[in-house]
Design a protein around this nucleic acid. Structure first.
Lengths: 147, 147
DNA sequence: TTTACTTTGACTTTCTTTGACCTTAGATAT
DNA sequence: ATATCTAAGGTCAAAGAAAGTCAAAGTAAA
């Protein structure tokens, strides 16, 4: 515990604040800590990953910046998410969506739209991969709902 | 957020008003924000696009001006379906979803969930096909919403 | 001594800003 | 009427300003 990455991690953690978001400038941070700009990317990609409960979003060009969000996890969603394997049929996915509605995470209109988005028609182009894509979509939804 | 383009965008959004239209003078705006006149065109062509639900119309010569309209529901479904080809980027798909929300077809929570379901992460397994799958999902949504 | 983690920097991609040059519409003079 | 002038807006490409990627080199831990 003394390397720059850890220090930068501390800094971000300390400043991410109550609204669970921080907006930073890669260049300024790098200047401040006297390191290569890409060091910031390294810290973000090793410490502020989705698995650890963070989302990172960057914008390039003049006035660009990097935003780091803290996701707040919910045990129930996490456990559902673990139960889901690599593949999901339309029926299984709909079952999950119905549960989410029942549990109050989503309303009926959203459920119907989501059902459309994971339907066989919508995922036709994914071919044999459709069940895998469908599982991923549902997993991402669970992640999103848990933040 | 500190670049002129974003500030000019804010300004236009703030002034477009209830009648969904604003008439502006390129010269005056550029003077006001101390930028090149063509900066205004840049803002208009990157932020006030059809995808995002706006139409821009300019008139040259003496007494010329630029009018920015916010599109309303009727125009929208039509222009959106025209816009959608075989493939759709995440950004494009999100504009569509934002338009749908603005037009009152979907609520914010549904939009966010749908955004998740067409994200790169969710469609990662579709690989190179992701933009095609994404376009299909959006098309199916439009079909569902229009009935 | 491996193996995993850090640090660095060259190169890429994306978005923004600027300026030179073009086109159009109305006004004015002939 | 017609030609010319002038005051708009339009286009495009080059330069600038971020952030992103990746691989090589350096360090620490097992």
């Amino acid at each position: 515990m003394a390397n720059i990455s850890d220090i930068i991690e501390e800094f971000i953690l300390a400043n991410i604040g109550a609204d669970a978001m921080i907006e930073l400038s890669r260049r300024e941070l790098a200047d401040y800590f006297s390191c290569a700009p890409s060091q910031i990317n390294y810290v973000l990609s090793t410490r502020f990953t989705q698995e650890r409960g963070y989302a990172v979003e960057g914008k390039r060009g003049g006035g660009g910046c990097i935003k780091v969000y803290r996701l707040t996890t919910d045990d129930m969603l996490e456990s559902i998410s673990k139960m889901i394997g690599d593949r999901l049929s339309v029926a299984q996915a709909n079952y999950v969506l119905e549960n989410l509605q029942r549990a109050g995470y989503i309303r009926e209109d959203a459920r119907l739209l989501l059902a459309t988005s994971i339907s066989d028609r919508a995922l036709a182009q994914a071919g044999v991969n459709a069940p895998v894509v469908r599982a991923d979509i549902i997993k991402q939804l669970l992640l999103r709902l848990s933040r």
